[in-house]
């Protein structure tokens, strides 16, 4: 799908995913547009999202937003879970809790409904940052 949208071969995308090659610099604007991000964000290894409030007239539908859960464990493992808000809403409707949705017990006291309420009110960026006693860092970022 990505290859089709960029007009390149699936093999080329596969090479990017496997870290055996990088996209041509001329493709960066198209890739940034495809993922609804900026070229700066693509080039920065660790983007630092800030919390901001989007005015009602500039907000996109919450169903098009993604809730990213990033866990940096003290042992060096990095886990990223990208959950479209639409999936989070479904999970809440059927009664799943945060640890079940995210797979991380460190988030057991996070009220997902309140997070979604913040998103509905236009808040985006890093909404939650938790450091556990074991030294794991857990972040929830809404984009």
């Amino acid at each position: 799908m990505v290859a089709e949208r960029l007009g390149i071969s699936p093999q080329a995308v596969s090479k990017w995913e496997n870290d055996t090659s990088c996209p041509d610099i001329m493709l960066l604007p198209q890739i940034a547009k495809l993922y609804d991000t900026s070229i700066d964000a693509l080039l920065n290894e660790k983007p630092q999202p800030v919390v901001s409030v989007i005015p009602a007239e500039k907000r996109k539908s919450t169903d098009d937003m993604i809730l990213r859960i990033i866990v940096n464990s003290s042992s060096g493992d990095v886990v990223r879970v990208n959950l479209p808000i639409i999936l989070v809403k479904t999970a809440l409707e059927i009664g799943l809790s945060m640890p079940q949705v995210s797979g991380n017990e460190a988030l057991q006291n996070i009220d997902l409904e309140k997070v979604l309420l913040l998103v509905d009110r236009g808040l985006v960026g890093k909404l939650v940052e938790v450091q556990t006693a074991e030294g794991d860092m857990v972040e929830i970022v809404v984009e």
């Binding site: 495809l34 098009d64 993604i66 886990v79 879970v81 990208n82 479209p84």
Partner: peptide
């Protein structure tokens, strides 16, 4: 919605 982006991406130490 994810359009090819990974749902889960784990990089072990």
């Amino acid at each position: 919605k994810l359009r090819g982006e990974p749902l889960v991406d784990v990089k072990g130490g």
